[in-house]
Design a protein around this nucleic acid. Sequence first.
DNA 1: TGCTAACCGAGACGGTACGTCTAGTCTTCGT
DNA 2: ACGAAGACTAGACGTACCGTCTCGGTTAGCA
Lengths: 214, 214, 214, 214
Amino acid sequence: MTSAPSSPSPRPGRPRSAEADRAILDATRAALVELGWSKLTMGDVAARAGVAKTTLYRRWAGKNALVVDAVADLFDEHLELPDLGSLQADIEGVVLRFAELLDRPETKTALMAVVAESTRDEALRERIRSAIVERQKGLVLLGRSRAQARGELPAEESAGAAARTADLIFDVIAGAVVHRTLVSAEPVDGEWARGFTALLIGGLSGAGAASPSA
Amino acid sequence: MTSAPSSPSPRPGRPRSAEADRAILDATRAALVELGWSKLTMGDVAARAGVAKTTLYRRWAGKNALVVDAVADLFDEHLELPDLGSLQADIEGVVLRFAELLDRPETKTALMAVVAESTRDEALRERIRSAIVERQKGLVLLGRSRAQARGELPAEESAGAAARTADLIFDVIAGAVVHRTLVSAEPVDGEWARGFTALLIGGLSGAGAASPSA
Amino acid sequence: MTSAPSSPSPRPGRPRSAEADRAILDATRAALVELGWSKLTMGDVAARAGVAKTTLYRRWAGKNALVVDAVADLFDEHLELPDLGSLQADIEGVVLRFAELLDRPETKTALMAVVAESTRDEALRERIRSAIVERQKGLVLLGRSRAQARGELPAEESAGAAARTADLIFDVIAGAVVHRTLVSAEPVDGEWARGFTALLIGGLSGAGAASPSA
Amino acid sequence: MTSAPSSPSPRPGRPRSAEADRAILDATRAALVELGWSKLTMGDVAARAGVAKTTLYRRWAGKNALVVDAVADLFDEHLELPDLGSLQADIEGVVLRFAELLDRPETKTALMAVVAESTRDEALRERIRSAIVERQKGLVLLGRSRAQARGELPAEESAGAAARTADLIFDVIAGAVVHRTLVSAEPVDGEWARGFTALLIGGLSGAGAASPSA
DNA sequence: TGCTAACCGAGACGGTACGTCTAGTCTTCGT
DNA sequence: ACGAAGACTAGACGTACCGTCTCGGTTAGCA
């Protein structure tokens, strides 16, 4: 399946390791596209990757962990925040990028499934948080600091309020896009993104609303 | 939900046991609480309900459809919108009620799972929409018309814009609460609800935010 | 076969449909031909006969009893012993008739199956004996008395010996034909029947062999 | 019986457990004794053998094939033909041994059942023939050659006649014993064996009985 | 003519077994 | 020491029949 490496390593160890990892994650994504989460099986992934099931279980604890890693790769590649010059453009941009990512069949079917599983599995929840959620949240922080630098948003009163507001904004953006895409099953297009962004900016800039005194 | 009540002529043969339906849905909820979505099995539900597996499959196509009906009942019971006197109070109320519902173990574990499955199953998606989503969306419409009657919100310019805005608001509210609860795994308490509501009302009453011309 | 016709008092209520009985037995034979014993189901027989399953169970205890009655009818129709003028011709005739009956798909598949079941079911064994076996054994007795009348066979020494010999001959004839047809799966044709009959008559007429002193 | 031992190269992967095979066949026989053919289930056999159902189905196509192999073992162990010095003694001996085998609960309940199934299943018929029937037929050939060596029976005129006669004798012996035991449900004791043997030897040594010219 | 009892169809019911599938582990050989 | 191959235990899957039951409705004989 894989070319025999010419490296004359004297001890047979793990020349496959890195290559196998990639093949497995690729196979996982391909299987997600074709079969969806619930029909995806470890045996099928192993066969696609040209790898024994043993090898999968040696590296991942199970289906959940494997899929999290497989889709996390996608988030790494596709989530970034180019500076588009204004807060509105930045938000619209990230909304559209995120929606595009969610619309891929491999993420669409996998993301909610692992979230569902994570309600019963603390380790999985932590893995999702570190592999996916925190990276997204970073975008919110980055966007806000840019907007504050541009003068579009006021500085926060305190570090605690800043964190709370960032969490709120993150949940609103990610939640709205996910809900629109997966639950309402309607497309997130330019029009929707503009409407949503207008609503959000209106809320953020309005009357100090985002920092409740309590 | 299962039968077509329009037919006035009773079909021949032994009628289905209404008691079994109730027992099955109760058992499903109990099993969700104890086992969670992924460990729930049809055989276990049947055993808890004191019913044969055949009876389950005669009424529901599978685990997905069964669980949708089981949690839909909870939405029926717990989702309502008492008039609290102001738009802010109404929104905070519905947010807290919805969060409370999502925090129940049976919904927490089941909701994202069936949504995930629905990405591959059109019939299931439709079932979720009619059994759960549309009822929630009704609350948004009700709340808005109350607010308009109170003068807190302006009337919509057109029916199309009204529907688009309602969908947007619905996705924002439901998405934010779901994301906060299940993905961020943080509590939706009074403070968060106030912050979120302030953000939303700010956006709604802000400069033309709710009606993008495009 | 099923009813007790001796009772002169007609029971109150609607009498059982005689037509249903016939339709059920016909349907059973047809199902045996098409499906064989193991694939035959009560529900299928009921559907073919245009009758509810309840009606079957009201008349027969189960699949075994039903099939015994269905094939017993065939034995009634096809087992007789026309006087062909000599012992040899009589035996060859009955062998060929019995073989022909066994070669029908409905008997071939059903007979051994009910015999197998009867090893664990005394009531079924009795039903087979009275409905099938005893009638066949009658043919042996009839054939022997004819042969004795013709002078082809000597009279028996005692009633006990007579009964024992008749049983032996019956088991030899029926057993050989059944074994040839179902186990060896070879045809019982005229040649085989002649060879078998010669063997049997040789044994019967030879040196008082059929009546061991013990 | 299950494997093709011709391949000298050991297939890759974990080899099948020989112990499991033995445990399964033992469990099958035990279940036949306790439950009989019709109540025997694959799941029960698996549980008795301490084996997963999958393992059964990996080796045998179903209940029929499994039971054939299980009873074939008994035939291997218990069917042999010690030289008792005379044709009569040899036949009586084999009749009694065969009857004893048939009287065991595991064979009594299973043999007719698989024969019945074999009327609809060519592969099963072939399996029964090779695993059981041919071995029995070998005994007939052996007994005849011994008798011919002793001068008790004449040599055959042709190979074809020899084969035909052997088949006939086999069907007569096996058929009579089976019919006596399972259909007539009467014991095969020494007296019956003597009577039957006398009948058979009389027929064999009688006037040209064994070689019909046609 | 109406009563009553047993019949009939249809089909839902609690059970049990089926044969398949997947998870995750274990064993063997080859490199 | 690792990897592929594949057998292993365990257990859920969804289906098929079993034999029973509950319906509404029918068909006799008796009053």
